[in-house]
């Protein structure tokens, strides 16, 4: 049959599972995803809109909610570019060069990812807290780190530390160094090599890394909870504000702010899918082995 010749890998009966098995695998996978992923997401929006759009909107424009949103955006706007620069630098030296201790370096870069967020917050308290190593000096110089913006940024940077690098390192490793080497031999400067050769190859991975990093930065709870101080309207980020509203029996408002964060997550995913769809070939070429 012609269809078989067109789709050689999936088309042959011997290489396919029987229909019942296929359907039950699809069914099982979809049920699992629906129960674990979709339902919580739907619940957030149902609860948020439970008292109508007006109540939803009121909850979002309420003064403390607005300042929580502003603070969250500000923190992410500082933390994400920092980790972006770091991620590009780290993946350049790791992917393009061979050197001793590389795997140790990779492990150290990965470390914040598996360290409990609670510990990430706590280390900064131990360092900058009043009874910490630098605490007395900071007080003398009237510098506030924890329970203020710098502490929130530090904790967020820590938690989202590996995101861009993790996305880029495998990508750049796959691509090898031939193109860059050729460019150098042809007389391009380092910056030109990066901009003209490397960047076009990694841009989609980079963008996705940034998006994920941003979503995680805005949504971090455990680490910022330790260093925030929870001052209403001043050091409450959105996830902390959700918790506070929830604790004030203000469930609609809590879920309304939560739905913004969920929306952010969805936008991240949609942008990613759009990229994959639009630049599918390019992506596949760069993401494949």
């Amino acid at each position: 049959m012609p269809a078989e010749t067109i789709a050689p890998s999936g088309g042959r009966p011997a290489l396919r599972e029987p229909l019942w098995l296929r359907l039950s695998l699809i069914g099982g996978a979809l049920t699992f995803l629906a129960v674990f992923l979709l339902l919580p997401l739907i619940l957030v929006f149902v609860q948020a809109l439970g008292h109508g759009v007006e109540a939803y909107w009121d909850a979002l424009v309420e003064q403390d909610a607005v300042s929580a949103i502003q603070l969250t955006v500000l923190v992410a706007a500082i933390a994400v570019p920092l980790n972006l620069v770091f991620g590009v630098a780290a993946s350049w030296c790791i992917a393009k060069f061979e050197f001793r201790g590389k795997s140790l370096l990779i492990t150290l870069i990965d470390l914040p990812f598996s360290v409990s967020p609670v510990i990430s917050g706590m280390v900064y308290v131990l360092l900058f807290g009043l009874n910490g190593w630098l605490g007395p000096w900071l007080i003398d110089h009237n510098i506030k780190i924890i329970f203020a913006l710098p502490g929130l940024v530090l904790a967020t940077v820590f938690v989202t530390f590996p995101f861009v690098a993790r996305e880029l390192i495998p990508l750049m490793q796959e691509q090898g160094t031939e193109e860059e080497e050729a460019a150098v031999v042809l007389g391009a400067s380092g910056w030109q090599v990066f901009r003209r050769v490397t960047l076009p190859n990694i841009k989609w991975g980079l963008l996705y890394g940034v998006l994920l990093c941003n979503a995680r930065a805005m949504g971090e709870f455990g680490a910022v909870s330790v260093v925030s101080g929870h001052i209403r309207g001043m050091t409450n980020t959105m996830p902390l504000h959700v918790e506070i509203l929830y604790n004030e029996y203000n469930f609609v408002a809590a879920f309304a702010v939560a739905s913004l964060l969920a929306l952010l997550a969805l936008v991240t995913l949609v942008v990613k899918s759009l990229l994959e769809w639009r630049y599918g070939d390019e992506l596949a070429a760069s993401a494949r082995h």
């Binding site: 992923l37 979709l38 979503a215 805005m218 949504g219 997550a265």
Partner: peptide, 13 residues
């Protein structure tokens, strides 16, 4: 696309 949701959705939410 939705598989990545837990990466992006805040843990407290």
């Amino acid at each position: 696309a939705i598989v990545d949701l837990p990466f992006a959705l805040p843990t407290a939410v």
